[in-house]
Amino acid sequence: MALFLLLVLVAVVLGIIGVVAEGLFYLLIIGIVVLVAALAFIGVRWSRRTGRHPIR
């Protein structure tokens, strides 16, 4: 969970810098890619965790 929060924080910071700083639009794109990767990471972990419980 800490890794997910760190990735989201990095994505937000890169996005803000990419929007504010002139000529650094690529940082916004990198921030979006990092955010999508973080969401995919948490989605994989979440789906793997729900499959471990035995059926009663």
Rank of each mutant, 00 (worst) to 15 (best):
Y26M: 11
R52I: 05
I16V: 12
W46F: 15
L7P: 00
P54S: 10
P54D: 08
I29M: 09
T50Y: 14
G31M: 00
L6V: 10
L6N: 01
L28R: 02
V34E: 04
A11K: 01
A37R: 03
R45A: 08
L24M: 13
L9S: 14
I55H: 14
A21R: 15
A40C: 10
L9H: 08
A37Q: 05
G43K: 07
L3K: 07
L35A: 14
F4S: 09
A21G: 06
V13N: 01
V8I: 14
V10Q: 03
G31R: 02
V20F: 05
L39V: 12
L28T: 09
R49W: 13
A21L: 15
V12H: 08
V19N: 10
F41L: 09
L9M: 11
L7M: 13
R49T: 12
I29Q: 05
F41I: 08
M1R: 10
E22I: 11
V8R: 06
L28P: 01
V44P: 01
R56H: 08
G43A: 14
L9K: 09
L7R: 08
L39T: 10
I30W: 11
V20G: 01
L28E: 03
G15M: 05
F4E: 08
F41H: 08
F41A: 09
V13E: 03
F41N: 07
F25V: 09
F25G: 13
R48C: 11
L14M: 09
G18Q: 02
G23E: 01
R49I: 11
L24N: 08
G23M: 04
L28V: 07
A40M: 12
E22R: 13
H53K: 14
V10F: 03
R48M: 15
G31L: 00
R45F: 07
I29C: 04
A40H: 05
I16R: 05
W46V: 15
L24I: 08
I55P: 06
A37T: 05
T50A: 15
L3W: 09
G18E: 00
V20N: 07
S47C: 10
L39R: 06
V12G: 02
V36S: 10
I16P: 00
G18V: 00
G43L: 13
F4T: 05
F25M: 12
A21Q: 13
V44R: 13
V33N: 05
L27K: 02
P54L: 11
H53L: 14
H53Q: 12
P54N: 03
L5H: 11
I30E: 07
G43F: 12
L14G: 04
A37D: 03
M1V: 10
E22Q: 14
Y26A: 12
V8M: 09
R45V: 09
G31K: 02
V44N: 09
G51K: 11
F41W: 11
R52H: 10
R45P: 00
L27Y: 06
G43V: 07
V19P: 01
V19C: 06
R56C: 06
V10P: 00
A40P: 04
L6D: 07
R48G: 15
V20W: 02
H53A: 12
I29T: 13
I29G: 03
A11M: 06
V8C: 03
L35K: 04
R49L: 13
A38C: 03
I29R: 00
G51S: 11
L7C: 10
V12M: 06
T50H: 15
L28G: 09
A38R: 00
I16M: 06
L7S: 08
